[in-house]
């Protein structure tokens, strides 16, 4: 066995022993790290879910044109021919009120409710695909159609998705800032944990230095400790998020039944989970390194 391997296994064993010998303070530190990490990581997870949700919608330049309830078939046909000639319209589909009602009956498990209605509350509608995807062009198209006779309401389906997108990028910035601040806090937590360890092991460090230990030898067990604690904190954060998604999904399941859309939250992907663990290990390592470097510098012979 090489000296390198022996040194590292020695340091790892020492770090694990120290972690296990102080179970209460280790658990507390890990919990603090887990909670602190779960905030930005959980935020990231939520953003990712919203992102996929809005991504399905925001891409398509779709408008819905609802006619007034009292519009006749002829009036609907007139709008249809207008749409056919319009240069900005790529394609359109007429949805008569009867088939819309039919669709509602089949699709959403609301057959009882719909069946109990005295008359059809739905208007005739056109679903229009525009040629352009430029928001301004779509908006002016919407305004133009709104002025057509018997056009009750024209809605730009992608508008709210775009607004959501804008909000999401704002959210990403917020999550990044939160991550940066809490990372700093985590480094500080590890720094202090290691500083306390160093203080209780002052004699050992001094003697080791005097009988020929390199700085690397002194540093290694503390670095392992920091990294292990970091990974444990990352795992704690992952579990907190897992618990959160589980609880939220339980509540969302009811909504999903009502509205028939897939509303399940997805946990972090395996790549993101790995990144989370690596990142938290790195933070622990960094905190430990700073702490030991600071101490070793203080005891260096001048």
């Amino acid at each position: 066995m090489s000296a390198w391997f022996l040194h590292h296994s020695y340091a790892l064993t020492l770090a694990l022993t120290r972690l296990v010998r102080t179970p209460f303070s280790s658990l507390l530190s890990i919990a603090v790290m887990g909670i602190a990490l779960s905030l930005p990581a959980g935020g990231y997870m939520l953003l990712g879910n919203l992102q996929t949700f809005s991504g399905h919608i925001s891409g398509a330049p779709q408008l819905s044109l609802f006619l007034a309830l009292d519009a006749s078939r002829d009036e609907a046909a007139q709008i249809g021919s207008r749409l056919k000639q319009h240069p900005q319209v790529a394609s359109f589909q007429f949805v008569p009120k009867d088939s819309a009602l039919q669709q509602l009956k089949q699709g959403n498990g609301l057959a009882d409710v719909v069946g109990s209605l005295a008359q059809n509350p739905l208007p005739d509608a056109f679903v229009i695909n525009a040629k352009s995807t430029v928001p301004e062009v779509l908006e002016s198209l919407r305004a133009e159609m709104q002025k057509w006779p018997k056009a009750e309401h024209v809605q730009l389906d992608s508008a709210w998705a775009r607004r959501l997108d804008a909000l999401l990028s704002l959210g990403r910035v917020a999550v990044l800032m939160l991550a940066a601040l809490l990372s700093f806090a985590l480094v500080a937590v590890t720094f202090n944990t290691i500083r306390l360890q160093i203080l209780t092991r002052r004699d050992e460090i001094e003697v080791s230095k005097l009988i020929g230990a390199t700085n690397g030898f002194i540093r290694r067990p503390f670095l392992y400790f920091g990294a292990i604690q970091g990974v444990a904190g990352g795992i704690a954060a992952w579990l907190i998020i897992a618990l959160g998604t589980y609880l939220i999904n339980g509540a969302l399941a009811d909504l999903a039944l009502l509205y028939a859309f897939d509303s399940r939250l997805h946990h972090l992907s395996s790549e993101d989970s790995m990144s989370l663990l690596l990142f938290s290990a790195g933070l622990g390592w960094l905190g430990a390194w700073l702490s030991v470097a600071n101490h070793l510098w203080q005891i260096e012979p001048k």
Binding site: D203, E204, E206, V207, K209, L210, I211, G212, A213, T214, N215, G216, F217
Partner: peptide
């Protein structure tokens, strides 16, 4: 590190013993 290597080749008995 050169200081560390030097000290490994010396046997040192300290005045204040430095027992752990």
């Amino acid at each position: 590190a050169a200081i560390s290597i030097l000290r490994r080749n010396l046997g040192l008995v300290f005045q204040d013993q430095k027992i752990l």
